[in-house]
Structures are given as C-alpha cells and as structure tokens.
Amino acid sequence: DETGKFLVLALYDYQEKSPREVTAKKGDILTLLNSTNKDWWKVEVNGRQGFVPAAYVKFL
C-alpha cells in the first residue's frame, strides 16, 4: 500500500559506499521513507532500504 508515501526519481546512478546506503540507477523510481536530512534521504528500492544523496533524486 503506497498511501501516504512519496515517490522520487533517481536523476543519476548512485553506487552505495556503505551498508547504510543503497544503489540506485538513473531513472529508478524510489519510495521516499524520510527526507528530514537535507543531504541524505532514506529510500526503498528493490526491497532494500537505505540512504541516497538528496541531490541525486527529485520528487515525481
């Protein structure tokens, strides 16, 4: 159920650099879980949760 969740689009490829991050490919649609940090947003992609740089994604 996606009610109340926001989707964001990956603008660039991002390769995770730590276990707390997730890899995303340009064009991926990610479920935004938390955007309270202006630099790192928590997302879910391909069943995995983790952080990506906020500058790499935008709201749909």
Score class of each variant (00 low, 15 high):
V43R: 00
A55R: 13
I29W: 06
T36K: 11
E16Q: 13
D39E: 12
V45P: 00
I29K: 04
T23E: 03
W40D: 00
E2G: 14
D13K: 03
E21Q: 10
G47L: 06
A55P: 05
K58R: 11
G27Q: 03
V57M: 11
G4K: 14
S18L: 07
Q49G: 03
F59N: 07
T23W: 04
F6T: 13
S35K: 12
D28G: 04
Q49T: 14
V45A: 07
K26S: 08
T23G: 06
K42T: 07
A24H: 05
N37Y: 07
L30H: 01
A55N: 12
P19Q: 09
D1S: 14
D13M: 08
G50I: 07
L7I: 08
T3M: 12
G50M: 05
K58P: 02
P19C: 12
Y14D: 02
D39H: 14
P19G: 08
G47W: 05
A54G: 03
D28F: 07
I29C: 08
A24D: 02
K26P: 05
A54K: 05
G4P: 14
K26I: 08
T36G: 09
L30V: 03
A55M: 10
E44A: 07
V57T: 01
L32I: 09
D28I: 07
Y56A: 14
D28Y: 08
V8F: 08
Q15Y: 15
L30S: 01
V52C: 08
A24C: 15
Y12R: 11
Y14N: 01
T31C: 12
A55F: 10
V8D: 00
V22P: 03
Q49W: 07
K17P: 03
D1H: 13
L32V: 13
W41T: 01
Q49H: 07
Y14H: 03
Y56G: 07
Q15E: 14
A24G: 04
S18K: 05
K42E: 14
P53V: 11
T23L: 04
R20W: 15
Y12C: 15
K17R: 12
L60T: 06
R48K: 11
Q49A: 09
L11G: 02
K58L: 12
Q49P: 04
D1M: 13
L9C: 14
E21H: 06
L11W: 08
